[in-house]
Structure formats: C-alpha cells, structure tokens
Amino acid sequence: MKKSEREAESFLPLTPAMFNILLALSDGERHGYGIMQEVEAASGGRMRLGPGTLYGSVKRMLADGLILESDERPDPALDDERRRYYRLTELGRRVAVAEAQRLAGLVSVARAKRLLTKTQVGS
C-alpha cells in the first residue's frame, strides 16, 4: 500500500457530516450555505446540516488539511464578499475516495448476505 493511501485511510471512518461535506466540495468550491444546500439536495432532504455541525466539521477538516479556504470567489459580482469559500485539497479528495470505497465494500458484503437487493440500493 502506498504512503498516500495509508495517509488517506488513517482518517477513516469519516463522520456522515464530514463525508457529505467532502462530497459537496468534490465538484467545486462552495460557501457554508452552499454546502448545506448541496448536502440536502444530494441526500434528497434526508441529511440536513445545522450551522454547528457544519462549522465544527469545517474546523476539523481545515486542521487536518482535507479542505482549504479559497482566496478566489467564483463570481464576486454575484456574491457577498464576506462569505468564505472552501475547496477540497488533494488529500481531501483521496480521503473521500477511500471512504467511498470503504462504504462500497460494506454494501457488497450486505448484498452478499442478502440483506440488500439492487432495487433497495437505488431507492
């Protein structure tokens, strides 16, 4: 196993909030409220981050080097300049991939034990 993979796996398992934040940032930088909206939309409204959960996780992820505060604004003309934007680091991306693989492994075990059918996974 490569050193970078070992480093990424040392963060696993992630809390649901942290994994959802990494997923929300995987396709571009967002500010706090943008992350909240993306998490809610991606989970079909089942996962809603409160301000405390969001910024508690952001604080720890910044300290661990999984995300970075972005200096640039995607569109300064359209947005409030006081908002802070966050983006994924290379380590953050590797950790998100490692967590997704871990969860995929668990899902395949559940499927092998007939706890889960293909239709249940999709629903």
């Binding site: 301000p51 910024y55 604080k59 908002r83 802070r84």
Partner: peptide
C-alpha cells in the same frame, strides 16, 4: 470557535 465562525454561522 465563536470568533472564528460565529459570523458565518449567523449568516447561514
């Protein structure tokens, strides 16, 4: 924590 994120939490 408040000093660092309080303003943003209020905004959210």
């Amino acid at each position: 924590f408040r000093r660092e994120y309080g303003r943003e939490m209020l905004q959210v």
